[in-house]
Design a protein around this nucleic acid. Structure first.
Lengths: 210, 210, 210, 210
DNA sequence: CATGAATGAGGTTTCATTCAT
DNA sequence: TATGAATGAAACCTCATTCAT
């Protein structure tokens, strides 16, 4: 499945005083545009307008449309990953059920506090699916979880990598489904608890007792 | 998150003999085009060319691009759903672990026999996410599983709906991830087995003994 | 202002038994399509559908789209012209005011009994404006009126051709305007009477007493 | 007789200096294209080419084809209306025959100095017939004439609105007919004089002496 | 003769991107 | 550096017309 333009094209790293504000504005605008109209209605002009800058300026910060979308997606995914990493770090050496509870809670929090953003970025993520970006961040998550599992106070895992892969990826389906249906909060909560149950029982099943 | 064009646009379908052939050709062509180039490189002209018909002909069967994509996606999802339904039907009254084994196997089979198609349609599904189409088929799957769980010979479930939701949606994340990374078959197989384990242990955990 | 396709293309004169019905159906359908959608939304397929025949059949009777439109327009204009001619014939040898009264009444009747048709055909007439068709029929009207004026019992005209031209063409503007605004019947009637007044006073002004 | 797209679509107009030139070029080109080929041969591409700009530029100023045509038509009709208004303003308080003479002369002048344009825009006007545009301008003309008639030094009118309607609309038929036939100037002139006669005698007929 | 599926040139419109100001 | 008018390739879609059945 060859893509036509694999090389992203970020022109500069905006570090100066004024640019921060501009970058932020573009960022928010991009999400807003995504929110009403979806990915296929997003145009660079539209984003620039919404951000209150000219297209030219936008292109000064993001060399092309893909870079822009990639950046926005990256920011979102980074938040999620960092939430996961932070939680994983904080839950080391705990029993499995504590770890999982914390992890699932953190993941849901990261995805559901701005459900609109998650929803808006779904299509973007799908389009850039094969891209390194998504892969890299996925791996970071899984790595964090691998370490976490290895430190469990009440279990030992033969194949922590696969376990981590299963747990991590199995969370995204339910969350996406909840977002797509605009499920009521109570149902979200029920699902969340069930996922904790599922993960815990799964991990216990494959764990060697300690 | 309002979408601009919710109503698909399927043309009144021609009724003559040759039309069947034409429609099939277009269909196949659509998948082929999707397979090399991805959703964003798909154009109606390209599909028509590949199908060996004129654009006009394509538009006689699918009123617009969205209808075409929706139809292709529907076909794929229908296959998956029907596989699930068939398996669910065949596994009634069995113990939970038999059910789950059959179900996961069927789901993987449906998704992995033509991994290219599944992969190609991922972006399409994301774009049409809010659409009834995806929702409807998801629900059919879940309904089938609800019935299945209710018939388990060795368990009784208080909230089979949520359970079904969790099990169903939790499968799609891992599968998608495997597709995205082009994971080797052995890893696919390992993940599949783990998912069986996970589902079984989850369902046993929430089941009332019988 | 050269047109690209001056030669109309009437394939055959339908005189047989069954064709009369078909031709009639196409005719009505054409008007109906014109009535909702205007001239730019009219397509041969649409007309055929509405007429309950296939496009192929339509093309058997009218070699191309222009022929169809020309035929429909001609029919309408012919009715008007014939109404004028009939009235002109019937009003010979009368005093001017009687002639004019009858003439204007007949013209209004022809245009206003099916205001929708008149309105629908306006754009068609404009498109085919330079065409012989419209010119020919216009001339027939004027000729009839020239003869009529020549027979007036109470006036003699030096330049009946110009007089006829003025009277004839001066009627179409007001009628078109009434149609465009969907003017209420009372206003239509008032305008009609005023036009009689205008024409009579004009003709008296330029007439040599008798 | 419902139209499908009543709302025109004028873009927010660019504000830079060069834009004025561009807009003017497009405008002229549109008329030129209309002049050879008629309304049905006019395409946005063709207009842009003739204007020496790209299609994209054209669409920056006119959101769609209809807007473009509407704008051109409006400009033409505005000239006519303004000519009428100016003349009406200048002829206040004169005797009827002076007013009419001036009015008819002005109207003919406005329509006949660029007969090609008038002719080219006829079909355009017919297509946009129901649109506000035409209605609004018609009304402006009539209003001006109502005021004018009210100020006549030698007549008083009971129903100046109807009178104005009749006079205004009765002028367009003859003019259109002259344009359609490419009538020789002498005949144009003769008709013009006759129309003056007609209008004057009509107005005198319905006027209350003073 | 009638049918209606197929054709494909061509029309309208969009939008990522550039570059003179 | 910011601007936004201009570009034009390319997408989507329509519809008059043909011709095999």
């Amino acid at each position: 499945m060859p893509r036509q333009k694999t090389s992203l094209n970020p022109r500069k790293k905006p570090v100066q005083a004024r640019s921060t504000h501009t970058v932020e504005a573009i960022f928010e605008a991009c999400i807003q545009v995504l929110l009403n109209g979806g990915a296929e209605r997003l145009t660079t002009t539209r984003v620039a307008e919404r951000a209150g800058v000219s297209v030219g300026t936008l292109y000064q910060y993001y060399g092309d449309k893909r870079s822009l979308l990639a950046a926005v997606l990256e920011r979102h995914l980074l938040q999620v990953v960092e939430a996961v990493e932070a939680t994983a770090g904080a839950s080391c050496n705990q029993p499995v059920h504590v770890m999982v509870e914390a992890l699932v809670k953190a993941f849901f929090a990261a995805k559901m506090t701005r459900p609109d953003i998650s929803k808006a970025l779904y299509a973007v993520a799908a389009e850039l699916d094969g891209q390194d970006l998504v892969q890299r961040l996925m791996q970071r998550s899984q790595l964090a979880i691998v370490k976490l599992l290895a430190s469990a106070s009440d279990a030992r895992f033969d194949d922590p990598i696969t376990a981590s892969f299963v747990v991590t990826t199995a969370l995204v389906g339910p969350v996406q489904a909840l977002l797509a249906v605009d499920a009521p909060v109570e149902f979200q909560e029920r699902v969340r608890q069930q996922l904790v149950l599922a993960a815990v029982s799964y991990l216990r099943t494959i764990a060697n007792g300690v």
